[in-house]
Design a protein around this nucleic acid. Sequence first.
DNA 1: ACCTTTATGTAGCGATCATTCCAAAATAGC
DNA 2: GCTATTTTGGAATGATCGCTACATAAAGGT
Lengths: 195, 195
Amino acid sequence: MGSRTHPGRPRKVSVEDTLEGALQLFWERGYEGTSIADLSRALGVSASSLYATFESKDRLYLRCMRHYGETRSEFVQEALAEENGIHALQALLIGAALAYGESGAGCAILAAQPGAAVDTELSEMRRKARERITRRIRRAQREGDVTRDLRASDLSAYVQTVMGGLSGASRDGASAAQLHRVAELANATIESWRA
Amino acid sequence: MGSRTHPGRPRKVSVEDTLEGALQLFWERGYEGTSIADLSRALGVSASSLYATFESKDRLYLRCMRHYGETRSEFVQEALAEENGIHALQALLIGAALAYGESGAGCAILAAQPGAAVDTELSEMRRKARERITRRIRRAQREGDVTRDLRASDLSAYVQTVMGGLSGASRDGASAAQLHRVAELANATIESWRA
DNA sequence: ACCTTTATGTAGCGATCATTCCAAAATAGC
DNA sequence: GCTATTTTGGAATGATCGCTACATAAAGGT
């Protein structure tokens, strides 16, 4: 299945560009608030082309959310790579405040509403993100950065709760500066988690 | 206009019951995820009756959100009535964790997605809630419960951000116990705001 | 009994929804 | 230039959307 003898007509818009454009609409208006006609109009591609490339609206939405995860979560990787565990978590919240403040639409995945079978996969994505934070905290506890008196899963839940709150505040119109100040208040809590 | 001479046919379902039932659907599935046909089926009332009583889907939704505010925010009043300012804010988060944990659908107003002209009013409701918290914090600062080194509006924003995060976590399936533990972590921050 | 008033259900409105069919267009290999 | 392959746009699918017209049912006032 790798012969590739006959090429066919070239696509008007690349898959990458389509995902990026569709993401913007889904991100701002949500899954149910974005119709195929909206996407077709905004992208300059007919509905049938979208269906030929991405099987259904569900699948396209899912691809967009994965695309979001791949292109908008660098700040998570960078923050968790901080040597000191406390600094890592604090950098995570500051990074979230900055990222959500820039976009003005919060986190596409955390802000997604329940809807059909898509929600299962999104919930799984959120669970994995939380798990990544939990593992980083466990490592910090092993390394003596974070106290062992508190459960890593609880601390992780707190961090993701604040991130979700920042996401919501961003969508509600909070300024980047405002989000930053909230993140700093939350970081005072994290400061108290030192071993 | 208070004569009331001719009564007319009695309604099958009271306005109160209709609002309560419609709220349940809107709360769980959101505005766009709930159709008039869904409401008609769930309430046992025809669509035309709904339109005769509530002018439009927008207005019905708005009435439901107000109904939510009137019947589900007792914990806010009770918490903010606490004598000590620090305790008031802490009770607010604990109360939110309890309330959102019970419903399993978070806060209907904080979790509402942007959509048409309805969003303006919901945003206003959130703003008023935040203002109420801000005023309580200012009072606490006057009474010497909370430090004057931090801006009341920032502290209020933090509290509402955590509430929004708890709401989202609840919708994502977090248990009441889990929400409670997160609230207690957030309350450690609030503890540090003592004057 | 009749009248006024209000709420009811049925049927239907045009618009939009996600999705599909299909023929034409555009490419590379032969 | 032909063929195979793939994407394209336009038209149409049935279903559902929010909403309305209309005739009838159920009450109290007289």
